[in-house]
Structure formats: C-alpha cells, structure tokens
Simulated assay, not measured.
Amino acid sequence: MTTANFEAAAGKQFTLGSDLSINSLPKVSLHDHLDGGLRPQTIIDLSTELGLDLPAPDAASLGAWFASQSDSGSLVEYLKTFDVTISVMQTPEGLARVAREFVEDLHADGVIYGEVRWAPEQHLTRGLSLDEVVDAVQGGIEDGIAAVAAAGGRIRIGQLVSAMRQNDNGLEIAQLAVRHREHGVVGFDIAGPEDGFPPSRMRTAFDYLAEHYLPTTVHAGEAAGLDSIRSALFDGRTLRLGHGVRLAEDIEVEETAAGDSAGGDSTFVTLGPLAEWVKDRELALELSPTSNLQTGAIAQWGSELVDHPFDLLYQLGFRVTVNTDNRLMSNTTLSRELAILADTFGYDLGDLEVFQLNAAAGSFLPVEDREELANRIVAGFGDA
C-alpha cells in the first residue's frame, strides 16, 4: 500500500451483503496489541512533546508509512515499525492517552469485550518502573471505559501482560502480571521473535503462572511451526494460540479426482496428533488474516487471503477467532477483518456470530461472565 492509495480503515463502515452493518454487530477482540493500535495523529502529538523525529510529517502520510512498511512478508521487518510507536509510549501521560483511545476505538468498532496485550518492559526508557507503566495503562483503560459509558455505551477490557521472549526475563514479568491481577490484568502472553525463542525458554515463568492460576496465551505458529506450537501447549500450558495458523501444517488434505478408485471427487482430511489435541480441547486460535498475510505466516499456502487456512480450520471444527493483531500496521479493524473473510469465503451472519461466540468462550473472563458475554452476542446478532 502506498501513500497515494492509503485510506485509514478506522471509522469506515463495512457491510455484509448490501446493507447489514458489520460495525454495529457485537464483537470480541482477543489479539490486539496496544503498541500496534495507536492513532497516527496521537503519535505526532506525543512525538512533538518528546522531541522525537518521525518518518512522515502528518497523520495521513504517517499511517501510509506504517501500512507500507508492514507489507514486507517478514515478521522481523513487520516488528521494526514498533520502534516508532513504542518511542512515544514512555511517559504516564502517553501510555494513558494511548490506552484510553484504544478503548474508544474498539467501542467505535462494535467491540464489547477486548483483551489488550502489551509488554511493560518496553516502556521503561524514561525512568518508569514496571508497576508504574501497568498502572498508567490501566488508568487509561478505565478512563476510556468511563468515556464510553458517559456516551451511553458499554465495553469491558482486560490487560494481557506480555514478556518479550528474547529477553529471558519471563519470571519477572509473570510476577508483575500476578501482582496486578486484581487491577485489570486477566492473563499473560509472550511476544517478540518466535523463531529461535521457544516457550520452553520461559518454563519457570509458566510454572509460576500455573501455580498462581493466571491463564496464558502464547504467540505460536506464526513465524515458527509445529515445534513452537507444541512448546506453547506443553511448556507454556497455553489456553489459546496467538495466531496458531501454522497448525495447518499438521493437517493433511488429499483430493481424489473423478474416475479413480474412490469412485468420484472426494476430499480426505487427516489430523495429526498436535492438530487433534488442539481441536479436541477446543483451544482458541487467535487468527489475524491481514497480519498473517503481511508477515508471511501463510506463505507456504499462498499469498492471497483465499489461500489462508482459516476456512479449512473453521470447516474442520476448530475454535477459530478473528482478530486484528495490529490495527495501525495492518490498516484494519475487526469489522474489516470480518468483512474480507465473508467476501473471500462466502460467510454469512451465522458464521460471523460463531466467530464471536468462539472468542467469548476463549476469553479469560470467569465462566459466568463468558456466558453473559455470549448472551449479549446472541441478542445483538438476533437484532441485526
């Protein structure tokens, strides 16, 4: 995407068919990075206050720069854009503003529950402590929730505290997450370069989290394959897979042509033991279609959305969920992700409802709250 044809997805209306607004449908967001969802104008404002240089002078061209840089086909190159967003998230005021606007933007897109993930260790360059940055983000989240309520809306948000897998300080970040579990934190994650940094490197952190009953979701099956997913499940005790798209490597699809010994066109699907384990335990897959294209996570299957194994996983009964990953970098919203999936695979309103119910079931809320969330989704889709 170039500056010339860039048009921000935020605020755009997406429809199913000719007139049904996807934006207005109740949605659940499980995989959305705080430092990947900034408004371009906010980056400009905060960088001016901090005296930082930016790669573009105004909001439109800056948004276009992010979209262009992120379309590299490489997760490593994709991650480099975060140097810019993280640089303006180093003060309590900056963190609180970004978090508040994050909540407001999710609500504007119809999200009724969201889990926002971020890595506190990346926000310490101006002297803040780990606990101070978590408190600043939580303050911004609460301000955003209050602003939504004041306007007659309703949204709920939980923090997912992430440890950067290359820094080998998982136990410290796990302890941080547990300290704040009564103040907004609902779970733990590990992020950063996946290939070469398996969850097993942070086994002590995951042991600690298990001892304190804090749920985990792990980035796995994006830049690395089945071994990474296996480590997330058995070293990380993960209850969800962050992306998890490469789980499809453990699924064998065989097509037979008419006239062969099978007697006609047939498709045979065989699940490997890892795929079967994930399916049987209904572990949610946090799939992010646009991001998965941009980072090359689906390169072995193709380079277009139609090549994404999303539909294969859905048709086989996996608990697929739809996510944005990084709304700024991918120039997307949850409504847009649903719209392009519906357009590509022919999904209808019932399919979109299933994706939201899957996300509600996979959320880190208490069971009673998950049930209430599911009821809100059913009621909202029923009124559509």
Rank of each mutant, 00 (worst) to 15 (best):
T324I: 05
V378S: 12
E255V: 15
E368R: 12
A10E: 07
V137H: 08
T324D: 08
D71P: 01
T85S: 13
G380M: 00
E77R: 11
A210P: 01
Q356C: 09
E249P: 04
A258P: 15
L313K: 07
R100L: 02
I155S: 04
A163K: 01
G242Q: 03
D280A: 15
I377W: 08
V186D: 06
E182C: 11
D280I: 09
L54D: 07
G225R: 01
D250H: 02
G11S: 08
Q356Y: 11
T324M: 08
A59S: 14
P55I: 13
F14K: 00
D32Y: 13
E368N: 11
A99C: 05
L50A: 14
V185G: 00
G382H: 03
L62V: 00
R327E: 03
R126T: 09
L283H: 06
V320P: 03
D227N: 00
D260Q: 11
M202P: 07
V103K: 03
L20A: 05
D105Q: 10
G346K: 05
G187S: 01
T217H: 04
S47T: 13
T216N: 05
E132S: 08
V161P: 02
T270H: 08
D109A: 10
L287R: 01
E255Q: 14
A379C: 07
T238G: 01
G17T: 03
T295V: 15
V134N: 09
E194L: 03
S261Q: 13
A59Q: 10
G263M: 08
I190W: 02
R181Y: 07
Q122D: 12
S68I: 02
E255A: 13
G259V: 02
I340G: 03
G380I: 03
Q13R: 14
T295D: 11
T321I: 08
E77S: 14
G184F: 02
P198T: 04
T85Y: 02
R319N: 12
G144D: 00
L233M: 10
D105I: 05
W301M: 10
L176E: 06
E254K: 15
G152A: 01
S61Q: 06
I229Q: 02
R156M: 14
L79D: 02
K279V: 04
A9D: 04
